[in-house]
Amino acid sequence: MKGIAHFISGATVASFCPWAVEAAQNGNPAFFILGAAAGILPDTLDFKFYRFFYRYDVSVYPDPEKLDPQPVADAVAAAVSEAAATGGPVRVKLSTIKLSADNWRQYRVRIDPDAGEVRAQFGPVVSTGQAPQPGTLPASRPAAVAKFSAPVRQSYEPVYTVDIFDGPGFLFKRNGAGEVEIDFLPWHRSWSHSFTVASLLAGLASLWTWEAGLVVFGAYAAHIIEDQMGYMGTNLFFPFTKKRTAGLKLMHSGDAFPNFTCVWLCGLLIFWNIYAAIPEPLYHFSFMRFMTYALIIPFAVFGAVRRFLVRAGNGRPESGAVKWDI
């Protein structure tokens, strides 16, 4: 999920702790700050610290002037073959192509185990918001193909998009069954996204109070559980487990609707929890009534209006989709 969803989830966990709400009512924000920080901390550790120290064996830097996808496909296929031959691990990084402050050249790579090949193709220039810029597709967009001869096991999706900031990395390694396993973003959701680290940090926070420890553990664990809803999964009990446990594949981390729903729901739960902690409230309403007014009716109205607007348009939500041939 997006950072804000994890962040507010952490604050929500704190709101379920009576001592946190009581402290907040008395002017002490510490438990909510701890909860929110612990909620986003696993990604902070990965994206702002660990990834800069993760070493790759091969880094692919496509030439922005000569958009040739063949070296990209060749490098990935060679890494798969090398991992199959040597047992691996082989770490490959596909670098992004920055054109200006807010423009990046997008490209995609598909690793197709059935066909035994890697395909790559360049796409449009995209903004940092990953929005394709009109009229920026290359005049000629050949799809490069490179073969490998090894059984491959995908743990993520077969197509990888490279566009903004830091490009994706892969770890190719042969498993006991002789298959080459693809570990997408090997530095992400590994040790940092584990209940073990959650316990460790909770222990540190417990040096202050056990209540703080509980808030930190709950918020950190909420992050791990939310990420487990996606595709990539997390390494739940590092170092006792060596690999990520596959996710439930219910959503993609960047999907707008689940992220927004999570943020909205968390906001409502926080509101309810602090309302419920008021000793003799001036206003009275039940949880069901509150959720009906604040969640069910607005979402139903949104769904109906959006359905109407999409139908009134061309029957499909508009997207700036680019056609890919890989």
């Binding site: 950072g3 804000i4 962040f7 700050i33 880094s59 992004t96």
Partner: peptide, 22 residues
């Protein structure tokens, strides 16, 4: 306070995307 924390913790590192690790 939580909004301040969010502002500070969600600033994205714009550099450090290329070159050897370290």
């Amino acid at each position: 306070w939580v909004i301040i924390l969010f502002m500070l913790m969600t600033e994205w590192p714009k550099n450090g995307n290329w070159g050897p690790a370290g």
